[in-house]
Design a binder for these strands. Sequence first.
DNA 1: AACAGTCTCAACCGCCTCGAG
DNA 2: TCTCGAGGCGGTTGAGACTGT
Length: 364
Amino acid sequence: MSRKPCCVGEGLKKGAWTTEEDKKLISYIHEHGEGGWRDIPQKAGLKRCGKSCRLRWTNYLKPEIKRGEFSSEEEQIIIMLHASRGNKWSVIARHLPRRTDNEIKNYWNTHLKKRLIEQGIDPVTHKPLASNTNPTVTTSPENLHSLDASSSDKQYSRSSSMPSLSRPPSSGFNTVSETTSNDGKPVHEDGSLSCKKRFKKSSSTSRLLNKVAAKAISMKEVLSASMEGTMSANTSFSNGFSEQIRNEEDSSNASLINTLAEFDPFLQSTLYPEHEMNTTSDLGIDQDYFSHFLENFGRDDHNEEHNMNHEYVHDLLMSDVSQEVSSTSVDDQDNTIEGWSNYLLDHADFIYETDSDSFEKHLI
DNA sequence: AACAGTCTCAACCGCCTCGAG
DNA sequence: TCTCGAGGCGGTTGAGACTGT
């Protein structure tokens, strides 16, 4: 209990690190590993504070750190997460592998914040600025993609390759504008197949997989929409988004959306924000509903045999989620959502590859 | 060419949380 | 249970690079 304080001492160097200092620090950490920062300066022969060594390593020297231009996808993730989390740079950084919180913070302050302001969006609330003449502009899904850098050409003239906020590969619900291909299957404007693919096999496994696919599809779309806007039910995203979905003119889309919402608590909370939340997270997830969803996930085929896969998948899902969904930690919810979406998306891909010819019958 | 203004981002500062003692 | 240091985090600073005049 008598530890000597860190960063106390005469003659400690400050300011920019030299190449020589970097080499010493890298060499020491390669040999001894990270940690014990208090003792590193002395052991590595550096006249630096341990904290300074840690920052230098974690923000700059660490080999896995990715540097350079942010992609448009990364920008969208930052904006979306900032809308729901605010200046929680470490939380945002966890969603951007190999990016440091410091780098994201700098990028926000020097690029994204200014760009939002120029687009008439308050970078704090992600809602239209008071002086903005176009009150419909927000970082909601329908608007985020239009937040390009065109109005900031002068601002970013030194960085000619400043990426625009382009739409990610998969669109959100509100952007799903389907036409019909030659064979009658719904096709998105970009030519990709609609996310309505389903198994037609009648086994319980197939139906379970259908539900997994439906879940994956809905979650994928919700997450995509979220990446274009904000995930918080308290922000303009959920209200504007649900409003748009409710006003969806395409009745078949609306039907699909409502059906998917039946299986998707995230979508439920987005579509029906007035639904009473028993436990309100900042993601707007009704955790009781989510638990109920999981409880019934794959369990409603009572007239069918429960084969091994069915049991396995169900048990896997329940074991993974039952312990995590009860958590009140925002970070844990992040991990849960991320894990779920990855898991489901993986299975959706499997389903598509396995049987992609029939998809209309179920759930619509 | 020189200067002033602007921008970028590495680094620092100070506060907070967690866990060891 | 309390104290205190390590580590983590967000806000801020300032040196250097860049641009405009």
